[in-house]
């Protein structure tokens, strides 16, 4: 079973949930898909055994063959080209903005003059290893790159269908989140009972409903803030699968890179119960 841990709002406790669930279960993989700032490794301290580069194909222009016809700009869905046709006293020019390129290959396919070849551009790396019996994989997008989904897809290539797979998704509701969640059997939405937490939870619920993924909510720091999140879940018939109260002990451990189950071992049973509840909610 593949469980994605997502949130909408950042800083609600996605990684805390993902890491503690992984530490409580057997035969498990943890895939940190927050490739813009992965942090699960801080808590799991895995032994990295394999490092792999991630490339996307980007266009390279042979200006000897280019006639500045503008076909590439026309077919590019991501606006990665600027083409300036030649004028009386100035030769034409073509600009490629590779940081907007998604590597779809349309430009080289449609170029009528075979002036475009695709060259590999490194956009990040994948690191894989183990933390005890937990198989650990995360991606790191290079600083300055904008295209997270190709790195996320490479992390997800490691999915082993014979294991329980826990995906730590990035915050928000945009492409990287959708790429991370897609294909999951269940989605845990972690939130906090604050107006910001609720606002972004509502957005995240819209996304998982659109993707038709069964889901449930975990309320972190559940004894702070207000009651509006509980009211919203009740109204929308959304299961609240776990409530983690605010505890100084948990926060202190977190600040030192220590998981909840390591600091408070009784919590292991709560995460095991959460896993059982996920299986039950999924069947509903």
């Amino acid at each position: 079973m593949i469980i994605a841990v997502a949130s909408g709002k950042g800083g609600t406790g996605k990684t805390t949930l993902a890491v503690n669930l992984a530490l409580s279960l057997n035969n498990v993989q943890l895939l940190d898909c927050d490739v813009e700032e992965p942090n699960a490794h801080i808590f799991l301290k895995p032994c990295i055994e394999k490092v792999q580069k991630v490339f996307i194909p980007v266009p390279e222009i042979d200006e000897k063959k280019c006639t500045y016809c503008g076909k590439c700009r026309e077919v590019c869905a991501y606006n990665a080209f600027a083409v300036v046709p030649p004028q009386q006293n100035r030769k034409g020019s073509i600009l490629v903005f590779t940081n907007l390129c998604h590597g779809c290959g349309a430009c080289s396919f449609f170029c009528p003059h075979q002036a475009i070849t695709e060259v590999n551009k490194e956009i990040g790396i994948i690191e894989a290893g183990y933390c005890g019996s937990i198989q650990f994989v995360h991606g790191k997008l290079n600083v300055g790159e904008a295209m997270a989904p190709p790195v996320i897809r490479k992390v997800k290539d490691y999915i082993d269908p014979n294991k329980t797979v826990i995906i730590d998704a990035p915050p928000g509701t945009s492409c990287p989140v959708v790429s991370s969640m897609k294909g999951s059997d269940f989605c845990l939405l972690v939130t906090e009972p604050t107006p910001f937490g609720l606002n972004d939870l509502v957005l995240a619920v819209e996304v998982v409903r659109k993707l038709k993924i069964p889901f449930g909510v975990v309320i972190n720091r559940s004894d702070l803030g207000d009651n509006k999140t509980e009211e919203y879940c009740a109204k929308e018939n959304i299961s609240v699968l776990m409530r983690i109260p605010f505890q100084k002990k948990i926060a202190q451990a977190y600040a030192r890179g220590i998981s909840i189950v390591e600091k408070i071992p009784e919590y292991r049973n709560k995460f095991l119960q959460l896993f059982e509840d996920i299986k039950e909610t999924k069947l509903k």
Binding site: A80, F81, A82
Partner: peptide
């Protein structure tokens, strides 16, 4: 979604 400035420039 992206590249608005590039297209507007052209």
């Amino acid at each position: 979604s992206g590249g608005a400035g590039i297209q507007s420039g052209q």
